[in-house]
């Protein structure tokens, strides 16, 4: 059982790989143990080798190529011949100075924050609703997963057709209630709202499932005690559910943030970031520069992508810190 105690000590905060290991108990059988340890060590390396090679070739190398793209001036010709001129941070400066940058940044913020705000609120409301086990609740909860499992192209094109100006069902309903036709996807005023609506729909299942799992970890006794003390349903929600759900909520929101930041498919399929730049986010902008037009512009696209990585990593570290604090607690 030395292994387990070692593992436990290895999990103590900031006790690095080389950190103090309790060697004393194994003193008597040192030679054999060391041989055994070293064999196990090499076996571990062997089993991890495919992953390490994979990460190096299929993660590190593409990322490296991406950085390389962003600091060179890659024209289509230079791309094929492989002799681009070095540009330093010129491409980054171009991107930051571009008229689209401000729009894309604001759109990204609105898209992400509004999306995850609604996804979380709706997901939580549904999680609380489904937490009371009623008849069919399991089946219905499973059905709620459907939007999340569908290929994004399927849901995005369905939404695009539903929001179609002339033949879409949404406008048909609006007109039936006396409203006027809204050009959801083709008007600069509503394009961003339209893709946000579709994206909220896509994200609700994920929030529902995770928050529902979180609710199930809250001991029933807490609610029983609160009921005995005469707490109303509303008080139980605000005083028990929400505070006890905080760690799960934080993780859900942060994961949602990181995922939403990366979204390209939904926006691209519904509006291609348009009309103009009306629904352009940073990720979509990067995609548009590189692959969206007939004229691929990889260098600025890579620069935008790298900026996006930096933003994602900042929030990623916040996520990791929170998760670690939560695990240690």
């Amino acid at each position: 059982m030395t292994t387990t105690s070692r593992e436990a000590s290895g999990h103590a905060p900031e006790c690095g790989a080389a950190g103090g290991r309790p060697a004393a108990p194994a003193w008597g059988r040192r030679p054999r143990r060391r041989a055994h340890d070293s064999a196990r060590h090499w076996a571990a390396v062997g089993f991890a080798a495919p992953l390490l090679a994979y990460l190096a070739v299929f993660y590190a190398y593409p990322l490296w190529r991406n950085i390389e793209l962003s600091v060179h001036d890659y024209t289509v010709r230079a791309f094929v011949q492989g002799d681009p001129a070095f540009a330093g941070f010129e491409k980054y400066a171009e991107v930051l100075a571009s008229g689209s940058f401000g729009t894309a940044l604001v759109n990204t913020a609105v898209f992400t924050l509004v999306s995850i705000g609604f996804q979380y609120a709706i997901g939580l409301a549904l999680a609380v609703f489904f937490h009371a086990n009623f008849r069919l609740s399991g089946v219905l909860r499973a059905l709620f997963l459907v939007p999340w499992l569908l290929p994004l192209i399927v849901s995005s094109s369905t939404w695009a057709w539903m929001l179609n100006s002339d033949h879409g069902i949404v406008n048909s309903v609006i007109e039936a209630f006396g409203g006027t036709q809204i050009n959801w996807l083709t008007s600069p005023d509503t394009a961003l709202a339209a893709v946000i609506i579709a994206n909220i729909w896509l994200g609700v299942p994920f929030n529902l499932v995770i928050l529902h799992a979180g609710l199930q970890q809250i001991p029933a006794e807490v609610y029983e005690a609160a009921s005995l003390d005469g707490a109303s349903a509303r008080q139980r929600f605000w005083r028990i559910t929400l505070p006890l759900l905080r760690p799960v909520s934080a993780i859900t929101l942060l994961l949602g943030f990181i995922y939403t930041l990366k979204v390209v498919d939904v926006v691209w399929i519904m509006t291609t970031g348009g009309p103009g730049d009306a629904s352009l986010t940073l990720a979509v902008w990067s995609y548009r520069e590189a692959f969206g037009t007939g004229q691929p512009d990889f260098s600025p696209a890579a620069a935008i992508g790298n900026l996006l990585i930096v933003i994602a990593l900042v929030f990623g570290f916040v996520h990791l810190r929170m998760q670690r604090r939560w695990e240690d607690a």
């Binding site: 993660y59 593409p62 991406n66 990181i258 990366k262 995609y287 590189a290 990889f298 996006l308 994602a312």
Partner: peptide, 13 residues
Amino acid sequence: MIPAVVMAMGFYA
């Protein structure tokens, strides 16, 4: 956390 569009560009290159 790495956006797929970034990976796509790297792979494309």
